[in-house]
Design a protein around this nucleic acid. Structure first.
Length: 465
RNA sequence: GGUCCCAUCGUCUAGUGGCCUAGGAUAUCGGCCUCUCACGCCGAAGACACGGGUUCGAACCCCGUUGGGACUACCA
């Protein structure tokens, strides 16, 4: 059997969004799973809408996700001569012809047909005229008039379209440039693509492209059409749905492996398994297990998966990943060892790197004030009394030594007859500014002797005011 | 309008004729654990769009209905 070769061909008219990223991922996974080749290509024949900086943003997004390519990037805009060559060949062999119908006339005919209730197809006015090239003429493919075009979609099953519903599509514009259909087909042929995994919105284009393959005397590749990704309102995902670019999620503190995991599970499944590493996916990915129906993008699921991945990532890497999110908040931790220890304390309670950075702040910055509700409830005269006792019990104690700290707490508990929780809550607020935080002992260990003492004193003074 | 595609809990899904009084995950709610918050654990609620067939038997097969969606460009 031929070696598998897939491709991802975005057009650089926008950033890489969720749906595109999933398509890229599926192609990449399939190639990797099959030990095949993955090609990256840019469909930039739309000169007005294509932008070079968008190419870069797509590349960045792919890199972030960990999707690499074996060939490319190829630019369609640099392959114009190839398309021209194939167009000429189609012309020479009688599989294409020049058409001089004006857009205006075509439009009128289309509208008339629609009004009549017919499918608005090109009526073949120039099909048998045997016209030569002329300014303003386009090239059309000569498609079969009868019969049906059938293909076996790897996810949808057999799909048949009557050829009577397919008209002679334009393959070269009047300025000589290729249209999308010609360009993709020629590219996929010349690049030796064996499997085309793309969005569901291309199913109805597929028969036309198959006709083109046949006209070129080439056996069409295998097609697999992946259903669309929808927004919460079940409409096609768009900017209206908030963050839709994959890099938005990078900024939000999503781990790339969580994104990949989520994307893979949106539309593909492997029994009941929810958590996947990249290697896992490469190992288990298959076309057969792609679902047939469209799926809604659910940020809650992404977040949950992200939390799972955060929990299973080693703290060294997490520390590096959270750095930019800390810097964004004006924190530049100098001590890497301390950062790693701090990260460890917030790791199980962070859904994103943003949350993690937020939860790390009190280790590095003096907080402005105390959380209002927490202060009201815990920074009371009793609280001050207990904290004073604790401060005294802590004299000469190394707060990074859990056993010594426990003993100090025990002493206060004995003196006051209060339980651990009673005493710990005011202390927690004093040390972190909030009523929710990592555990008391790990908290103190990372904070260190100076900060623990200073913040205790500060809180006691605060209550005294 | 025409052609094509799709249809299981709110959401992502398992399910490929008997294992389904439909499983998992997430979100929601309740409880346990506990120094707080998380994590973890236990539990509740929650779906086969509808109608006909086929079959001893249908979430699974067929037809229809309804509802979504895609395409219908000298855009990709």
């Amino acid at each position: 059997m031929k070696k598998v070769k897939t491709r991802f061909p975005p057009s650089p008219t926008g950033t890489l969004h969720i749906g595109g990223a999933r398509t890229a991922l599926f192609n990449w996974l399939y190639a990797r799973h099959m030990g095949g080749t993955f090609v990256f290509r840019l469909e930039d024949t739309d000169r007005v809408r294509s932008k070079e900086e968008l190419v870069q943003s797509i590349v960045d997004a792919l890199n972030w996700l960990g999707i690499d390519w074996d060939e490319g990037p190829f630019y369609q805009s640099q392959r114009l001569d190839v398309y021209a060559e194939y167009t000429q060949r189609l012309l020479d062999e009688g599989n294409a012809y020049y058409c001089t119908c004006s857009p205006e006339v075509l439009n009128e005919k289309r509208e008339a047909a629609r009004a009549r209730g017919d499918n608005p197809l090109y009526d073949g006015t120039c099909r048998e005229k045997d016209l030569g090239p002329s300014p303003g003429a386009v090239v059309r493919l000569r498609s079969p008039r009868t019969g049906a075009t059938v293909f076996e979609d790897q996810v949808k099953g057999p799909i048949a379209t009557p050829n009577s519903q397919l008209d002679d599509l334009v393959i070269a514009r009047s300025d000589g440039s290729p249209t999308y259909h010609l360009a993709v087909v020629v590219d996929d042929i010349t690049m030796g693509i064996t499997h085309i995994i793309r969005g569901d919105d291309h199913v109805s284009n597929t028969p036309r492209q198959i006709i083109l393959y046949r006209a070129l005397g080439v056996e069409p590749p295998v097609f697999a059409h992946v259903p669309m990704v929808l927004g919460t309102d079940k409409k096609r995902l768009s900017k209206r749905h908030g963050a839709t670019a994959v890099t938005d999620y990078q900024g939000l503190g999503i781990l790339p492996e969580a994104m990949v995991n989520y994307l893979a599970r949106l539309g593909w499944s492997h029994g009941d398994q929810e958590f996947f590493t990249l290697d896992d996916l490469v190992d288990k990915f298959s076309l057969e297990n792609i679902g047939k129906s469209a799926g809604v993008f659910d940020p809650a699921r992404l977040l949950d998966l992200n939390a799972d991945h955060i929990r299973s990532t080693d703290t060294y890497r997490l520390a590096n990943l959270v750095l930019p999110h800390l810097e964004k908040r004006g924190v530049v931790p100098g001590d890497n060892k301390r950062l790693i220890e701090a990260v460890e304390t917030v790791q199980p309670r962070s859904k994103t790197l943003e949350e993690m950075a937020e939860g790390l702040l009190f280790y590095y910055k003096e907080f402005e004030g105390y959380e209002e509700k927490a202060a009201k409830k815990f920074l009371t005269p009793d609280g001050a009394k207990w904290m004073s006792l604790l401060a005294r019990a802590l004299e000469g104690v190394d707060v990074t030594d859990q056993y010594q700290v426990e003993a100090a707490f025990q002493k206060v508990m004995d003196e006051t007859g209060q339980g651990f929780g009673k005493i710990a809550q005011p202390v927690r607020v004093a040390l972190t500014g909030k009523s929710a935080s990592p555990g008391m002992f790990e908290l103190m260990r990372v904070l260190g002797n100076d900060l623990v003492r200073a913040r205790l004193a500060r809180a006691i003074a605060h209550i005294g005011d």
